[in-house]
């Protein structure tokens, strides 16, 4: 059985009626859509099921996320996000996670950048605040 991400991270782009800054820097941005898929199907999958509730990108500001991502002390320092983005990790969950399977061969840095794009874009003060409701 495939499970639905149901309430978790049905990212509402709240498109209309919300006007916000574009942060520019488009060329350096990762592929936010790929980041979105990985975030929803890998990160949220774990948070929702095991780590007490989804973590919405719009729960923090761009500044906070930037700092969080560069420090990379995931789960209160227990491990690193890089680990969960790595090819090894993707290979290990490939059998049970379609996103990990689909992006099995994306270089680590590229995928990390994609996730970063999505999180910054979805931040509280980002261009498209993304909730996980």
């Amino acid at each position: 059985m495939t499970k639905t991400v149901s309430p978790a991270c049905a990212v509402s782009l709240c498109l209309l009626g919300v006007a916000l800054h574009a942060i520019g820097a488009h060329a350096a941005d990762g592929d936010w859509k790929r980041g979105r898929v990985y975030y929803q199907k890998v990160c949220t999958d774990c948070h929702g099921a095991k780590a007490g509730g989804a973590i919405a990108p719009n729960s923090r500001s761009i500044k906070d996320w930037t700092a969080y991502l560069s420090a990379d002390r995931h789960a209160r320092g227990k491990d690193a996000l890089k680990k969960y983005v790595s090819r090894e990790y993707r290979a290990s969950i490939k059998g049970v996670n379609k996103a990990a399977e689909k992006y099995a061969d994306v270089p680590d840095e590229q995928l990390f950048n994609d996730i970063r794009s999505f999180m910054l874009k979805g931040a509280k003060d980002g261009d498209s605040p993304a909730s996980c409701t």
């Binding site: 495939t2 499970k3 990212v11 509402s12 929803q40 379609k98 689909k102």
Partner: peptide, 18 residues
């Protein structure tokens, strides 16, 4: 908006991972 990046259970065609 759940169809922006749905999984297979939600929509077999739009499945973002498929």
């Amino acid at each position: 908006s759940s169809l922006a990046s749905p999984d297979k259970a939600l929509d077999v065609h739009m499945d973002a991972t498929g």
